[in-house]
């Protein structure tokens, strides 16, 4: 994916300004920056989740395989099937684990044969490193799992529809350190098949788990802008921008 001069507005307010960001395929790109700098807003622009906010609008282009996802003839629903999302708080449906994973698949193919669906569910749960923990209780509600398991269920649900890109909006902020490490570990295997973008307010997480890092910051007019984009180790050992240096070394503000 590629953002070209993308600006995101809420009504007259410009939340994110002029972001040009190449997202490398099958790599993990982390977005970091202080609160309110538009990290999540930018992330949500990549699968048109901002469309759900009435006044939101995007200027510039965001390209997926060369096609602008904000072109007038593109349906947001179609975009979201190719660009999946995992949210800050684990939000499994209050349904059986099986149905959680199967839901997106059924939407796309209501008449899918049961064995095929079974296979997809198992494969997705395995992909999310959850299968061994839940294979005997697929009929139990997804909300009965622990927080970390719920989040992995959400990942399984997202990859079940076989997207190209996976967006993660602070996926570990509600989890304990062990569950967090598990998700990060999972991301390393997921990146073999998916392009991953992750917003995190945890710099260490960006450092640990990502290949590229985007540093964002709020301008005086309160619009978020991208101030640095580089390989993660570069950002964390030798950032070019003084503000990035201050931020990653904890001397911000």
């Amino acid at each position: 994916m590629l953002a070209e001069n993308a600006s995101i507005f809420y009504g007259a307010f410009r939340a994110v300004a002029d972001v040009t960001l190449p997202v490398h395929e099958r790599q993990i790109t982390a977005i970091i920056g202080p609160s309110g700098c538009g990290k999540s807003t930018l992330l949500r622009a990549f699968n048109r989740m901002n469309d759900l906010v009435q006044s939101a609008r995007v200027e510039g282009k965001i390209l997926l395989d060369g096609d602008n996802i904000y072109a007038p003839d593109v349906d947001a629903v179609a975009v979201r099937r190719r660009v999946g999302m995992v949210f800050q708080r684990p939000n499994p449906f209050p349904k059986p684990i099986y149905d959680n994973v199967a839901y997106g698949v059924r939407l796309g193919n209501p008449r899918i044969p049961k064995p095929e669906l079974d296979a997809i569910v198992e494969q997705s749960l395995r992909g999310a490193a959850l299968w061994d923990e839940v294979k005997d209780k697929l009929k139990e509600s997804g909300t009965a799992l622990s927080g970390g398991q719920q989040q992995r269920l959400c990942i399984a649900r997202a990859i079940a529809v076989q997207p190209d890109v996976l967006l993660m909006d602070e996926p570990c902020s509600a989890l304990d350190p062990i569950a967090t490490i598990k998700i990060e570990e999972l991301m390393q295997t997921l990146k073999e098949r998916y392009t991953i973008m992750i917003v995190t307010h945890n710099m260490q997480q960006a450092a640990r788990a990502s290949d590229y890092t985007v540093m964002m910051m709020m301008r005086p007019d309160r619009a978020g802008e991208m101030i640095e984009f580089d390989q993660t180790e570069q950002i964390f050992t030798n950032p070019r921008d003084k503000r990035t240096e201050d931020y990653v070394s904890g001397r911000f503000g």
């Binding site: 923990e133 490490i181 598990k182 570990e185 640990r208 788990a209």
Partner: peptide, 10 residues
Amino acid sequence: MIPAKRPILD
């Protein structure tokens, strides 16, 4: 519980 592994660090 599967143990967390930290593949990159390892």
